[in-house]
Amino acid sequence: MRRLLDLRIPRWGWKLVYVVAAYVIGTMPAQLGLALGAYELGFVIGALVRVGLFLYAARIFRGRGEAVEPARPWWQMTARPTLSRRLGILFAILLALDLLGSALAAAGLYDSGALPLVVSIVSVVETGLIAFLYLNSAVRLRRAGVGSTEPVRPTFKPKRLKVD
């Protein structure tokens, strides 16, 4: 277990692989539940898995210039407040869309395909929790002074070779 918590992913390519794998893993319980006739239970388990994978990613991902070895504080989701804020806003928008869809379905103005109420509630709670975690991280990182001096961005200019 300790080795899993000591893992660090600093490169964006591996982060992308993790996110795609986490998405696939997070949808498996709902698909299995659908096949077994227990979609609601599968969806709830999938939501717990997805939130767990989000929290684990926040522990192991590292940003440019961030120290690799030490563990992040429990509340820190990203290396910079700007990224935390942007992801928090993205999930807040998804939360608003979830709430709007649920309200329209409850009012009978939108056919949700007989989506169970528990799925709507779990989806709203999951998205709201993730939005809160990212926005909280943005506020706390800004208060801690992180990101006030952004590191110099790489220019990606090739080095000139000296010809003797």
Rank of each mutant, 00 (worst) to 15 (best):
G52A: 11
L99W: 02
E126N: 11
D98T: 09
I9K: 02
G26K: 03
A131R: 00
V125H: 05
F43A: 03
R64I: 06
A138F: 01
P10A: 04
A105L: 06
A96T: 03
A57N: 05
E150A: 14
G108D: 08
G26V: 02
L104Q: 09
G108Q: 07
F43E: 04
I89V: 13
K159W: 01
L141E: 01
R59D: 14
R50D: 13
Y110I: 04
Y39C: 03
R86E: 11
E69H: 12
V163A: 10
A131H: 03
K159A: 12
P158S: 12
L129T: 15
V17A: 08
T27N: 14
G13L: 07
R80I: 00
F132Q: 06
K162S: 08
P154M: 02
R143V: 06
L109Y: 10
F156M: 11
L97P: 04
G65S: 07
I9Y: 00
S84F: 04
L34P: 01
A96M: 11
K159N: 09
R62A: 09
I25M: 14
R143D: 12
L90Q: 11
G33R: 00
L32D: 03
S102A: 15
V20H: 05
A79G: 03
F54W: 13
R2V: 12
P158I: 08
S84D: 07
G26D: 08
A30M: 09
A107C: 08
L34M: 11
P73K: 13
I130G: 02
I89D: 04
A138P: 02
L129Q: 04
